[in-house]
Structures are given as C-alpha cells and as structure tokens.
Simulated scan of single mutants.
Amino acid sequence: MNALQTAKASIQRLADLLRSTHTARTTFQAKRLPPLPAPRATTAYISGKGMVQGRDADTGRVLGFRQTPKEAAWLQQALENGTHANA
C-alpha cells in the first residue's frame, strides 16, 4: 500500500467511527428521561447529625441533601423558584 491508499483507508475508518458515535449519541438521547417538573412546595427533614434532606412536600421524594438547615433552606428556595438544576 502506498501512502495515498493508507490515508484513504484511515479516512474511511474515521468516517465509520463518526457514524457509529452519532448513532450512539442519538440512542442515548432517546433513552434519557425527561426533566422532572419543579416542586410546588418543599420541606426540610433533619435526618441525622449534619444531614438535612430537602423533600417535595407533595410526593415525599428526596430532592437533595445539605449539611445545615440554612443550606437546606437555600436549596428549597432554589428548587421552588426553578433556579436549581437537578439537585
């Protein structure tokens, strides 16, 4: 094989790799779950020393953990305003 044929084969392998990564990316995007809606109201539960849970008041789902009640209050406010991304 001369240098031109080697380069052509390398370019072909690269094109095949790009097609397979595009397929993998679109498959991953299709499997991703839609983002959860912002909670209407949240509550804080002290669940141990240095452990405060921020929970959705309606469902009881845990939305995040913080070390102090003050940090948990900031988390709750951000979640209710919709300014916090994926606690």
Score class of each variant (00 low, 15 high):
Val52Gln: 02
Glu80Ala: 02
Gly48Met: 06
Gln67Tyr: 06
Gln76Cys: 07
Thr59Phe: 08
Thr27Arg: 10
Ala24Cys: 03
Ala85Pro: 01
Arg19Met: 14
Leu4Cys: 08
Leu75Lys: 00
Thr83Arg: 07
Ala9Met: 09
Leu4Met: 14
Leu79Thr: 01
Pro69Asp: 05
Thr6Glu: 04
Arg55Glu: 00
Thr68Cys: 04
Val62Trp: 02
Ser47Tyr: 11
Leu14Asp: 03
Pro34His: 05
Ala38Gly: 08
Gln5Cys: 04
Thr26Asn: 11
Asp56Trp: 15
Gly54Arg: 03
Phe65Tyr: 03
Gln12Tyr: 06
Ser10Lys: 15
Arg40Lys: 11
Arg61Asn: 01
Ser10Glu: 12
Pro34Arg: 13
Pro69Cys: 04
Gln76Asp: 03
Gly50Pro: 08
His84Asp: 01
Pro69Ser: 01
Tyr45Lys: 14
Pro39Leu: 12
Arg40Ile: 09
Asn2Gln: 05
Ser10Pro: 12
Ala3Val: 15
Met1His: 09
His22Arg: 02
Asn86His: 01
Asn2Pro: 00
Arg61Pro: 00
Thr26Glu: 11
Glu80Val: 03
Asp56Arg: 14
Arg19Ala: 14
Gly60Pro: 03
Ala78Trp: 01
Asp16Cys: 07
Leu36Ala: 14
Thr43Tyr: 05
Lys49Asn: 13
Ala41Leu: 08
Pro69Val: 06
Ala9Lys: 14
Arg19His: 09
Leu75Thr: 02
Ile46Lys: 05
Thr26Ala: 10
Phe28Trp: 15
Leu63Cys: 01
Met51Ile: 12
His22Gly: 04
Thr43Ile: 13
Ala30Pro: 03
Thr42Pro: 02
Arg55Tyr: 03
Glu80Asn: 01
Gln53Pro: 03
Phe65Met: 10
Val52Asp: 03
His22Glu: 07
Pro35Gly: 09
Thr21Gly: 01
Ala3Thr: 13
Ala72Ile: 04
Ala30Val: 05
Leu36Thr: 12
Ala9Gly: 02
Leu33Thr: 14
Pro69Phe: 00
Ala3Trp: 12
Met1Ser: 04
Leu17Arg: 15
Arg40Asn: 05
Arg25Ser: 10
Pro39Asp: 09
Arg19Thr: 15
Thr59Glu: 04
Arg66Asn: 04
Thr27Leu: 12
Ala85Asp: 14
Leu75Arg: 01
Pro39Tyr: 15
Ile11Leu: 12
Thr6Leu: 10
Gln12Pro: 01
Pro35Leu: 09
Thr27His: 09
Thr42Leu: 06
Ala41Pro: 00
Asp16Thr: 12
Trp74Arg: 03
Arg32Pro: 07
Asn86Leu: 02
Pro39Arg: 14
Lys70Thr: 06
Ala41Met: 10
Met51Arg: 14
Gly48Arg: 06
Ala9Asp: 03
Ala85Ile: 10
Gly54Asn: 04
Phe65Ala: 02
Arg19Tyr: 13
Asn81Tyr: 11
Arg66Val: 05
Thr42His: 04
Asp56Cys: 15
Gln77Ser: 10
Gly50Lys: 10
Gln77Leu: 13
Met51Asn: 11
Leu18Gln: 13
Asp58Trp: 07
Ala38Gln: 06
Ile46Ala: 05
Ala30Trp: 07
Leu18Asp: 03
Ala15Met: 05
Asn81Met: 07
Ala57Ser: 09
Val62Ala: 09
Ala72Met: 06
Arg40Pro: 02
Ile11Ala: 13
Ile11Thr: 09
Asn86Lys: 06
Met51Leu: 13
His84Tyr: 13
Asn2Tyr: 05
Ala78Ser: 04
Gly48Thr: 04
Asp56Asn: 11
Leu33Val: 15
